[in-house]
Computed example of a mutant assay.
Amino acid sequence: MMFKKFVIFVGAVLCFNISSAQSKYTFPEDYKVLEVLPSITDSRITESNTPHLVVYNPTIKQGKLLLFMPGTGGVALKGPKDLFNTAVKQGYAVINLSYINRPAIAQICRKETLEANPDCASDFRINRIYGTNNFEFTTDKSYDAIVNRLIKLLEYLSEIDKDGNWDSYLEDGNLKWDQIAVSGQSQGGGMAAFIAKEHRVARVVDFSGGWDFSAKNKLATWYYNASKTPSHLWYGTYHVTEPMAKVIRASYIAMKIPENHIYPFSLPVPEGKKGHSNGVRNTGYTSQWIELLGQGN
């Protein structure tokens, strides 16, 4: 597969079809950082066409891939780069995936809609992750799905970045989930958990991963489904000041995450910020991030 590409060299950073919005964060000089528009990997993609963020260290042994998915309204280039830096130090290659993350599931699967379809949240996540079903409350196309975006990105990287060994995360055009750790914040954390239920992934780290319901005050049934990923590879966090902290914790218990793998973060939240996103932003949790991520290589 051949791709049309435009390459700009900026110090140690490679930028592919980069947007005008540049991050002020500087990764270490020995890292390779790539910003790739989804549409250059699949020309059908037009929605949420802000760049994916790809980060790894070509000077160390290539490890597993950490797939991170932002929360509602999240932009990949504005992701938690201190967390990603920690992941690279742990031996991972990191992809912060650009995908359609609006509207939120909690905005759609509620009230009359939830009463009419108790599986609304599960149907929503299937649509957004795989694109294999029809879901009347979104306009997502099958090629907009998380899985397609990731496959197309890895295929593209395999062509233009031979140092990255991106083929190791693909097999016969499909994802090698056992070589991929899945993670995300809020909606993205829920996506990671949903994927880990259905595929045996290398690890799952859910940062405040949402609150899906099947009825008022009743957790969605998918939380209780059997998991292809064994429980010792599951991790979940939340901040104790979050309005939905108790529900998030209850979802982790429903998913049978071991008690010692549930992290109730409690460091002070800066004024004007929210506890909901503090877990992926606050460098005071670096030692916990290392435990959550484990060794990537």
Rank of each mutant, 00 (worst) to 15 (best):
M1E: 12
M1F: 15
V10H: 14
V13W: 08
V13L: 12
F16R: 13
N17V: 08
I18V: 14
F27S: 00
E29M: 07
E29T: 07
D30F: 03
Y31S: 06
K32M: 09
V33G: 06
E35A: 09
E35W: 07
S39M: 05
S39I: 14
T46I: 13
S48W: 10
T50D: 14
P51K: 13
L53P: 00
L53Y: 11
Y56K: 02
Q62I: 06
G63Q: 00
M69L: 13
M69W: 01
P70F: 06
G74W: 00
V75G: 00
A76F: 06
K78S: 12
P80W: 05
P80R: 07
K81R: 15
K81Y: 08
N85C: 03
N85Y: 01
T86F: 03
Q90I: 01
G91P: 00
A93M: 13
V94N: 06
V94H: 01
V94E: 02
I95L: 12
S98F: 03
S98D: 06
I100K: 08
N101L: 05
R102T: 02
R110T: 03
R110G: 02
K111H: 07
K111W: 15
T113P: 10
E115R: 15
E115N: 14
A116H: 09
A116R: 12
N117G: 02
D123G: 01
I129F: 08
I129C: 07
Y130H: 04
G131V: 03
G131N: 04
T132F: 05
N134H: 11
K141I: 12
S142E: 15
Y143W: 14
A145P: 11
A145H: 05
A145R: 09
I146V: 15
V147P: 11
N148D: 04
N148G: 10
I151W: 08
I160Y: 09
D161L: 09
S168N: 14
G173R: 14
N174E: 11
N174S: 09
L175C: 13
Q179S: 15
I180S: 03
G184M: 01
G184Q: 02
Q187N: 13
Q187D: 08
G188F: 00
G189R: 02
G189P: 06
G190D: 02
M191R: 06
F194D: 03
A196G: 05
E198Q: 11
V201S: 04
A202S: 10
R203M: 05
D206F: 03
F207I: 08
G209I: 12
W211S: 14
F213Q: 05
S214I: 04
K216D: 02
K216E: 09
N217G: 03
L219M: 12
Y223F: 12
A226W: 08
A226K: 10
S227I: 06
P230Y: 12
H232W: 08
L233A: 01
W234P: 00
G236Y: 03
T241N: 12
V247G: 15
R249G: 07
Y252F: 13
I253T: 09
A254R: 04
A254Q: 08
M255S: 05
M255V: 02
K256M: 09
E259S: 15
H261C: 11
F265C: 06
L267S: 04
P268Q: 02
P270D: 04
G275L: 08
H276V: 01
H276R: 11
S277C: 10
N278G: 02
R281I: 11
R281N: 07
N282M: 11
Y285N: 06
T286R: 10
Q288A: 14
W289V: 00
I290R: 07
L292S: 10
Q295S: 05
G296P: 00
